[in-house]
Design a protein around this nucleic acid. Structure first.
Length: 553
RNA sequence: GCGCCCGUAGCUCAGCUGGAUAGAGCGCCGGACUACGAAUCCGUAGGUCGCAGGUUCGAAUCCUGCCGGGCGCGCCA
């Protein structure tokens, strides 16, 4: 839509230059079409005249007047005004909007999709929680953002793959196995000493109990060394099954599950380090191998291989990101908890060192979630094993409310998740506000069907939709694809939620003021078409958030 | 100490990548069901956009410096 107007404005400008109405000059980048906040400033506005004023050495309003003269020849405009310092304000005719409405109806469930991404390949990596415990609420936020972003990017014409990186290597795996082993001993009546570094959560005991049920006491007298592998593997697979079940319930889908271990086993990590050593980017000091990250904007150099010969997590991560690029992705999106922000320069440095543009990597830092209940913050201590799991929240307030709340905030701001509000089924809880709008429209069609009325889209006289609320609704519906595209390119899923909330508001307002089904069959048909299209956009939008569009509530 | 993020109405947050008179919801107060769903709608009040400079036609938005809050600064993952 904006693109269309922009093309028109640029065309008018070039024609004026050709006709020598304006001094010969090139169009400056940076002019844009916007939607004015004030209705009296038109449906769309262009700032071209102001942007070009300094180049042309002419007053902006004078330039705008000339452009207006040319553009007015287009019958789609009802009027064009020159306003303020030199804005061009465009007012489209009602019939223009009527035609758009019919177009949206034809597009149906594909309305909102664009080719903005031009088939660029994107890899979105998110959650990637270590398989040492169940997902907590913070992971949930990352999961909602990542999954929704994938849906939005797809709609915007990107080719998207989602990926979960499994850190199945390192001390933590042994610690996990040891924790379960100790609890196993405990469950079978042994006195144990539970070290501080072990995982204290109750889920460890649950796993130990399950192992007792399945295998009895056969490991009771075995040394840890002998059965560590068994306990580790059992624990990981059980925890991982839990994580997958939670994500499934949360409607979060992954195309790939990428194991860190495979990078080590295949020698890919060592190979990557060898490449960087050859380039002189990795050097030896104090028996360890160091990466010259400081040459690439990081604060200091980082260890990739410790003096004991063990590769660090960072080493694997360098290799992992190299692997991502080599798989042919044009753009990488990593969604991390904000507490990992110090890591960003390091990974970007690694990409640069390998000869890839660091701009390819977009890291979304998702800020932490404060869980509130009764006006107080619920303590979240991983150390003590006391944290609220994603599953608990889902069982409590439901998938739709949880996803929507996570998706109505920019991810770089802290989020207060108020459980009391999330449980409420009212306007305080915007998810129901939007869903209710959809359910209400469904109910309109149910009533229509009861009365033997069916929408016949091909024979609707759309020109009957002339109330300001109707035109306003149509204008807003038309914007949807642009919102999706902007949401994709800015990597900000929350824009969809805000759009939908506003759309729902317009619908509710319209609903109280007008009746879809009335005495006039022609008008009823026209309004049912509007209802149908609104319903479609609500559904398409909710789909992008992974939230259901219920027929009844 | 250094780095990253945040600071907008009493509360929770938007603000379309620099546009015109800064917006929602909640909460407060007051209204609206004999009609397709009142999980809704309408109205009133509420602001020095943390503070101070700078950039320009124009700043909540960009740059600098402070103030306040959060998070990071391992041969951990």
């Amino acid at each position: 839509m904006r693109k269309m107007i922009k093309t028109l404005v640029e065309g008018a400008f070039e024609r004026l230059v050709e006709e020598k109405e304006l001094p010969a000059s090139k169009l400056k980048e940076g002019h844009l079409i916007s939607v004015p906040k004030q209705e009296q400033h038109g449906d769309y506005a262009s700032n071209l005249a102001m942007v070009m004023a300094s180049v042309l050495k002419m007053p902006p309003r004078q330039i705008a007047e000339k452009l207006k003269g040319v553009l007015e020849e287009n019958p789609d405009f009802e009027k064009i005004e020159v306003a303020g310092p030199g804005f061009l304000n465009f007012f489209f005719s009602d019939s223009f909007w009527h035609r758009r409405l019919v177009e949206i109806k034809e597009k149906g469930s594909t309305f909102g999709s664009t080719d903005t991404g031009q088939g660029k390949k994107v890899l979105v990596e998110f959650v990637s929680a270590n398989p040492t415990g169940p997902l907590h609420v913070g992971h949930g936020r990352g999961a909602a953002v990542g999954d929704s972003l994938c849906r939005i990017l797809k709609a915007a014409g990107f080719k998207v793959e989602s990926e979960y990186y499994i850190n199945d290597v390192g001390n933590q795996m042994n610690t996990l196995g040891r924790s379960v082993y100790l609890r196993y001993q405990e469950v079978l009546g042994r006195e144990i000493e539970f070290p501080d570094e072990c995982y204290k959560g109750e889920y460890i005991r649950d796993i130990a109990r399950e192992i007792v049920e399945e295998y009895g006491d056969r490991f009771l007298d075995m040394d840890l060394d002998e059965c560590l592998e068994f306990f580790t593997e059992k624990a990981v697979s059980k925890i991982f099954k839990g994580i997958k079940d939670d994500l499934d319930l949360f409607r979060v889908h992954f195309d790939n599950w990428f194991s860190e271990r495979t990078l080590h086993d295949s020698g890919y990590v060592e190979e990557t380090i060898a490449i960087l050593m050859k380039k002189g980017i990795i050097y030896e000091k104090d028996g360890a191998l160091w990466f010259r990250t400081s040459d690439f904007g990081d604060e200091k150099d980082r260890v990739v291989k410790r003096s004991n010969g063990v590769l660090t997590y960072f080493a694997a991560d360098i290799a992992y990101h190299r692997h991502k690029v080599e798989r042919g992705f044009d753009m990488l999106v990593d969604i991390w908890g904000a507490d990992h922000h110090g890591y960003v320069p390091r990974v970007k440095a690694a990409l640069k060192a390998l000869g890839y543009e660091p701009e390819r990597l977009n890291v979304l830092l998702v800020q932490l979630v404060n869980l509130l209940e009764g006006g107080k913050v619920k303590a979240m201590s991983t150390r003590a094993g006391e944290f609220v799991t994603l599953r608990q929240v889902l069982d409590d307030v439901g998938v739709d409310a949880t996803r929507f709340i996570f998706l109505t905030r920019k991810c770089d701001s802290h989020l207060d998740f108020d459980l009391d509000v999330a449980r409420k089924q009212s306007q305080e809880n915007p998810v129901y506000y939007v869903q209710y709008a959809h359910a209400r429209l469904c109910s309109v069609f149910a009533t229509a069907a009861d009365r033997g009325i069916e929408l016949a889209p091909d024979s609707v006289d759309v020109s009957l939709l002339s109330d300001s609320e109707e035109i306003g609704l149509m204008k807003f519906l038309v914007r949807f694809p642009e919102v999706v595209a902007a949401s994709a390119t800015s990597l900000e899923p929350h824009r969809i939620s805000y759009y939908l909330t506003e759309l729902a508001g317009m619908l509710h307002k319209y609903y109280t003021k007008h009746r879809f089904i009335g005495d006039d069959p022609e008008l009823t048909q026209a309004r049912l078409l509007l209802a149908e299209v609104t319903k479609t956009v609500l559904r398409n939008g909710l789909e992008l958030l992974g939230v259901e569009a219920p027929e009844k509530m």
